[in-house]
């Protein structure tokens, strides 16, 4: 008889122990939610909500301590759970708002920096444009000045020599009578004065290739005429070099009587055929001049 009573008491005590050992799910969830909230951004951004949730949880715990099985425990735990979740959500919301403010500030900073960079680039571009414009203006003025000097030099040249334009370039013709004694390839003193003016005019033209051509009339031996014409061409070339013309830009050619410009049967025609022509190339291209050939003048015309 005593045994059933003892077993019943043990059973009741076990049930009581089980009943008090496990809190209701709502309270367990509320405790977990509170822990999550405390470890999240709510601890920084939602302290008031966190405090309210803690108070709610404390009320639930108090109710559980005084009457574990009462329906009040479940309701208060439920409210504590929601308030802990609310604190967590509000903490995350405030964190997102703070992040947005930070990003907006970064954006404004970037926009300001971009503006500064753009203004700097614009200023640089304007400065470069101004420099380019000034450079172009200087070049234009230099070209105009060079052209003016070349024209002036050419006008000056026309007073001492015949000047004409041909496809091969500007041809300056100097009479052989003025430059050399008959049959000689040594420049006369008067020729040097003329060639000084020619040299000045050629220098004003800038760096151009020159061909100095010697020509004779048709009298005498053609081979002698060719040697004489070449010697005279060299004499003129060498003199021009002494007056500052770059030697590498001048070629001396002896044409002999092969390219007359007048009738060789008359004295006047032959006089015109005895000449030296300086051909100024139309472009700025320069070619290596042929080395002067060391042929002593043999013909005397």
């Amino acid at each position: 008889m005593k045994l059933p009573i003892t077993l019943s008491l043990v059973g009741l005590l076990s049930l009581q122990a089980c009943a008090t050992a496990r809190p209701p799910d709502e309270l367990l969830q509320a405790r977990a939610a509170m822990q999550r909230a405390q470890q999240g951004p709510a601890s920084r951004y939602a302290l008031v909500d966190l405090h309210t949730a803690q108070q709610s949880l404390a009320s639930a715990e108090q109710a559980y301590a005084s009457s574990p099985r009462s329906p009040e425990v479940r309701d208060l735990s439920y409210v504590a759970l929601r308030r802990a979740e609310l604190a967590g959500v509000r903490g995350e919301t405030a964190e997102a708002v703070a992040r947005q403010s930070e990003l907006d500030a970064q954006r404004q900073q970037a926009v300001a920096q971009n503006l500064v960079n753009t203004q700097a680039a614009l200023a640089t571009a304007r400065a470069e444009q101004s420099q380019t414009r000034e450079q172009l203006e200087r070049e234009r003025l230099a070209r105009a000045d060079a052209e003016r000097r070349a024209n002036a030099a050419m006008e000056s040249l026309r007073r001492v020599a015949a000047v004409r334009e041909e496809q091969r370039g500007t041809v300056i013709t100097l009479s052989g009578e003025v430059l050399f004694a008959s049959g000689e390839s040594v420049l006369l003193p008067i020729a040097q004065q003329r060639l000084d003016e020619v040299a000045a005019a050629l220098q004003a033209q800038g760096s151009r290739h020159l061909v100095v051509e010697g020509h004779t009339d048709a009298r005498g031996n053609p081979a002698d005429n060719e040697r004489l014409s070449l010697a005279r061409a060299h004499a003129v070339r060498n003199y021009l070099v002494t007056r500052g013309i770059d030697a590498s830009t001048i070629t001396a050619v002896g044409a002999g009587a092969s390219r007359p410009v007048a009738d060789n049967t008359t004295a006047e025609g032959r006089a015109n055929n005895r000449r030296v022509e300086i051909v100024v190339s139309p472009s700025n291209e320069t070619r290596n001049a042929t080395a002067p050939t060391e042929h002593p003048p043999v013909a005397s015309r």
């Binding site: 997102a96 708002v97 947005q100 990003l103 907006d104 970064q106 954006r107 970037a110 920096q113």
Partner: peptide
């Protein structure tokens, strides 16, 4: 609060996109 959090997150995402576009 959940609706406000959604709005705030969306606004932060948009702010990030704007910041990245500017820089």
């Amino acid at each position: 609060a959940l609706a406000r959090r959604q709005d705030a997150r969306r606004a932060a995402d948009e702010a990030r996109a704007r910041a990245e576009a500017a820089q």
